[in-house]
Design a protein around this nucleic acid. Structure first.
Lengths: 218, 218
DNA sequence: CTGGCGGTTTTCTGATACGACAAATATACG
DNA sequence: CGTATATTTGTCGTATCAGAAAACCGCCAG
């Protein structure tokens, strides 16, 4: 092992983990010593991790996530807290939502122009009245929350009896369970839906997933 | 292999990573050799990882995620799809939400009785009209989505000019940015808010966090 | 200039993950 | 049963990670 010029070069990681860890630590206003205290990892090890001089073991990644109080998945995922440059807030006016339509729904996707967004909020007008002739039952990953803005809808699922939701009622479900919505009121009902994708790391991912979900009949 | 004390004992990881990796591999119908091929990790190493005999380095975790075609965050996160036993859906009627009040808001937490929930939906009546005399600017982790149900509100943040939101308008923000809401309309405004905690793994966690956020003045 | 003093980086050494190979099982299938 | 395939286990050499301590780096006071 001739040390003839061979620098560490820090190629043992993707080169973003370290800076990400440092950023999180700084955001929490902690010193290396405090993180060491909180995680049980030595100061030097943390320093090397932050400088991408080592590829930490899974064990230490877990301890790090624990001590920094951040889910491990967030810690290691590439998306990072790097909000630099991108907007941290976006507003969508009542009429300005991004519109699209399917066989059974009119959909207005809200707040589409913010990056690194994990929830996908949208307003939907439910046009179908028959669970079978509709787009059909849809099953996808993640969780969804529904709040009835206007009218009344029925929620059809594979495991429960249909549920009637009136204005102001809300529902939260594991969206892996196949489901569909139909209007029960005279006028087409309107619901506010927020979908959370477990896998989604970026806004563009989410948007793509929504598109594919809406296009498949199932 | 005499059990003369020194056995691996597999305490170098949390004990769930290995089985999880194996499960994913099996689901994909791949052999160790194929995964080795796809990831560049040796067969023996993968075997040891799957049996929790080693704590893989971050570098190998990345290669593994890449080769198994799964987001790294999903690969390492504990959460798992184990929804067995608990309810997969819950409904909250318009009048039945869990109520509480603070100096500036009346809050109805929605869908509180479902486990493993990551989004925290709530309806808030905004009573304050002065951003300074209110509960004060609040900064917390995560993201929040707001939809105005009734009236008009102003959103005050540390980085942006106050934004006026009318009925039907919506907003999405990185809630680490300090913020507060005030009513602009004659009648107290009502908003639907969905908060996503990055750390939250379970409903109870979320509820506790909401409580502490609401109680601190800051 | 000099000497603390937090905070961080580097150095040094023991512990351990990794890769390659081989032998021992385990599993699947005819 | 055999045979083929897949997986586990063990060994060895190397790469490299973790931790302790020393060195380093502003920064500030005297």
């Amino acid at each position: 092992m001739e040390g003839d010029g061979t620098r560490p070069v820090a190629a043992r990681t993707d080169g973003t983990l370290g800076p990400r860890v440092r950023r999180i630590r700084k955001d929490l206003g902690m010193t290396l010593a405090e993180v060491s205290q909180a995680t049980g990892i030595s100061i030097s090890a943390i320093s090397k991790i932050e400088n991408d001089q080592v590829s930490p073991t899974f064990a230490n990644l877990m301890r790090l996530a624990e001590g920094l109080d951040i889910p491990l998945g967030r810690l290691v995922s590439i998306d990072s807290e790097d909000r630099s440059g991108s907007a941290r807030m976006t507003v969508t006016r009542a009429g300005d939502a991004k519109y699209r339509t399917t066989q059974s729904y009119d959909i207005w996707a809200l707040c589409t122009n913010i990056q690194h967004k994990r929830m996908m909020p949208m307003v939907e007008r439910v046009r179908s009245r028959d669970p079978d002739s509709a787009d059909g039952m849809i099953s996808h990953s993640g969780e969804e929350f529904v709040f009835v803005l206007k009218g009344a809808v029925a929620v059809h699922t594979e495991h429960y009896e249909p549920v009637r939701l009136e204005e102001g009622d809300s529902l939260y479900m594991d969206s892996q369970m196949a489901h569909t919505y139909t209007t029960l009121s005279q006028e087409d009902a309107e619901i506010l839906m927020v979908w959370l994708s477990p896998a989604a790391q970026s806004s563009s991912d989410n948007t793509r997933m929504v598109e594919s979900l809406l296009n498949r009949k199932s």
